[in-house]
Simulated assay, not measured.
Amino acid sequence: MATMQVQSSEGGFCKSMVETNGYECEDHNVTTKDGYILNVVRIPMGRCRDCRTRGNKSPVLLQHGVFVDGRSWLLLPPKQSLAFNLADNGYDVWLVNSRGTEYSEGHTSLNFDDPAYWNWSLDELVAYDLPATFQYVYDQTSQKLHFVGHSLGTLMVMAAMSRDQLVNMLASVGLLCPVAYMGHTTSLLSRVIADNFIAEVASFFLCTCFDKYEAKFSRNLSYLPELKLWDIHFIGQNCCMKSSIMDIFLDHEPQPAAMKIVIHMCQLIRRGNTTMFDYNDSGTNIKHYGQPTPPAYNMIGIPKDLPIFLSHGGADALSDVDDVKLLLDSLQGHDPDKIVVQFIEHFAHADYVMSGNAKEHVYDPFIAFLSRLH
């Protein structure tokens, strides 16, 4: 696996989102086995006087969901942001930008506009992106990682663990709005797209990705009160999000994504299970998997002694309460001393990264959970 480290650069992620808030920052590039060059941002220390020591700090890797990038962890002011709070509490913080997003557009041989560049789904994120970033951070720090995922980021790590990947490098897992199962989602937009095979139709007409131009168009639409696509129609009615934070969000998000991963998510919604990508052709599935149907990601394969912090909201349309219950049922044999389950009735999907009271309700309890592990 080829890797390359790049120090803080002019005008990039570090300059615009981290250094302007008084934190030290490093840009790192990680190359996956299938050639994607991922930007990973490191915040090695906090900005308070007592925080500014390098030492042997525990690394925490933050993984965003689909249609966003690593900046989703930095939308809130420093005193309210999870990434900055972790740094101020003595952790070595790493933020991933997944393939295809603004800071991770590179590839060793493919052009960003090449349809082959966008031939990936959840399976490639699980098989290539997560192992590459885990290995890189592990090699840089010589320590096991604490992982925090939001939305699709939770499914990525659970799917990887179900196939015995990454486990030896994990110290703990934080699952915010887990989407291991999506069959009960009440997201109107997701339901319409999935039930009417809209992504499949778009892909048939050679639309290989939700690209940066469509993302920009969606940002403009999202300013209209009647078309809050990133609010009630997609993710649920968020309780505590200021309009100023939404404005910051719309300066950067949504981000491009492969149409194939949208199709994969639609398959999971329609079927209510968690399997690898279905090519809807037994011969093609046999070619890829050696069997006529795609293999399942087995959630009961998660190690029973791995410390887990799981938090979900009652108003979340994507991470529906009934779907989270299915995940919790699969974790019933987990060591009760190693799992913390938190339910916040009034929180929806975006509240976990964009609400001003997320620190009080989620981040402080999560950091307390981490501190008990040391």
Results as ranks from 00 to 15, higher is better:
F197G: 10
A180V: 11
N298T: 05
Q5I: 14
S355L: 09
D335S: 09
Q255H: 04
S243A: 15
A348V: 11
F197I: 11
Y117W: 10
S16F: 11
Q332L: 12
Y352A: 12
N85F: 01
A180M: 10
H252W: 09
L229E: 02
H28P: 13
A2V: 13
D323P: 06
G46W: 01
N29D: 15
S121I: 14
Y136G: 07
L373V: 15
S72H: 03
R52K: 08
D211R: 05
E26Q: 05
P59S: 08
L310F: 03
W120F: 15
L188D: 07
G11C: 13
T32G: 05
L250W: 08
W73L: 14
C207G: 11
A87M: 11
L110F: 09
K79L: 15
D335W: 03
M1S: 10
I269N: 01
C239W: 01
K304D: 10
Q5F: 13
K287T: 03
F366P: 09
R270G: 01
E105I: 12
L86C: 14
F347D: 14
Y297L: 08
Y117P: 04
L227P: 07
S330A: 15
A257F: 00
R372Y: 07
V93G: 07
A171F: 03
P78C: 09
Y23F: 12
H28T: 13
L62H: 01
A194W: 00
Q165Y: 08
D320C: 07
G106L: 13
A199S: 10
M354S: 07
N168H: 04
S243W: 07
D69A: 15
S81M: 06
S172M: 10
E26P: 00
E226D: 07
P77A: 14
G65Y: 04
V60C: 01
S190N: 12
T3V: 11
R42Y: 11
C177E: 06
Q332I: 12
F134E: 02
P225K: 01
A317V: 01
M299H: 10
Q143R: 03
L95F: 04
S218Q: 00
G90H: 00
K338E: 13
C177F: 07
T208K: 06
P292D: 04
E19F: 05
S187L: 08
D322P: 06
A368H: 06
D323Y: 00
E345G: 09
G55W: 01
F217D: 05
D337Q: 12
H288K: 13
L95H: 01
R191Q: 11
D123S: 11
Y128V: 10
E214N: 03
I232L: 15
L145A: 10
D27P: 00
R372T: 15
Y223I: 09
S172R: 02
K325H: 14
